[in-house]
């Protein structure tokens, strides 16, 4: 049983109106899997019937539950997969042609419990063009608690089940009691630091790649503009910025342009703005 186009459209419009998060066509399975337990709890035989009643009665509490079910993100490895494919197939090979010192600097600007920076490093190891290269990773977050977790490199069984291919698990992790620990070869490449994106950044060397995914959605327009302007100042002129699927620079900071990268897209500083930062 899969969700009908009408039900998907209703949920898509609801989530977009309430959260600015866009569920692209192809995310029907996500809607289905996230709503099925809500539907059953509400006594419906399937998600379609649940959504049909929701669209008629529009019970505010149920509407809120639906939005929360679709916008609460547990952190997965290789979250959304497309950005990591773009890194491996497009961004890293491009950088490999233009960095004579065989060194790349990456910033994961809201690293949470560490899955994102470690996923980036695993992707770098899977990129043939970067064999023998040095990848410097700065991982920052507002939460000291999250940074401590990320730095420990320890993940529960439930966490390593989320989006991590089995071959990657056995290659990059070792058992530590009931948990799994990221290999020292990876964790030693990451520098963790507390950082509040709303405040001026400390002095930093330029980055070739910045991951700023699913962060801007929480800020107002002026703050988004300020953050994107300051990110430009710490980017290499030909650097690559990754945003979340529901985020864009258009109408916020037009010094960035969206360019295709594999089946996904990244943001780069427009040519005419590069002189300002180089």
């Amino acid at each position: 049983m899969t969700i009908s186009p009408d039900a998907f459209t209703f949920v898509r419009e609801l989530v977009r109106a309430e959260s600015a998060i866009v569920l692209d066509p192809g995310k029907e399975y996500l809607v289905q899997s996230r709503l099925v337990s809500l539907a059953r709890t509400a006594g419906h035989r399937d998600v379609d019937a649940f959504v049909r009643e929701l669209s008629t009665r529009r019970n505010p509490a149920t509407l809120r539950l639906v939005v929360e079910a679709l916008t609460t993100n547990e952190t997965s490895w290789f979250r959304d997969s497309d950005p990591f494919t773009a890194l491996r197939e497009s961004v890293f090979p491009t950088l490999a042609e233009t960095r004579p010192h065989r060194q790349i600097r990456v910033w994961a600007a809201a690293c949470s419990s560490g899955q994102e920076p470690y996923s980036i490093l695993m992707t770098a190891q899977d990129t043939p063009e970067l064999t023998g290269w040095k990848v410097d990773m700065l991982a920052t977050d507002l939460s000291q608690e999250m940074l401590d977790r990320a730095r420990s490199g320890l993940y529960s069984q439930l966490e390593v089940n989320r989006g991590l291919p089995a071959t990657t698990l056995v290659r990059h992790f070792e058992r530590a009691g009931l948990s799994w620990r990221i290999s020292p070869a990876l964790s030693s490449q990451v520098q963790f630091r507390q950082l509040n994106l709303m405040r001026p950044f400390p002095p930093m060397e330029r980055f070739d790649v910045v991951f700023l995914r699913n962060v801007l959605i929480y800020f107002d327009l002026a703050t988004k503009q300020d953050i994107l302007r300051r990110v430009r100042q710490v980017m290499a002129p030909d650097g690559h910025l990754f945003l979340g699927a529901a985020e864009m620079t258009m109408g916020v900071d037009d010094a960035w342009e969206r360019v295709p990268a594999g089946s996904s897209s990244v943001y780069r500083i427009r040519e005419e703005h590069r002189s300002c930062v180089s």
């Binding site: 399975y29 099925v36 069984q157 439930l158 390593v160 089940n161 989320r162 989006g163 089995a166």
Partner: peptide
């Protein structure tokens, strides 16, 4: 085997 899912798991983990 192509993949390996360890019990216990969530529905989201299976879908992923």
């Amino acid at each position: 085997a192509h993949e390996y899912l360890i019990k216990p798991f969530t529905a989201d983990a299976m879908v992923e």
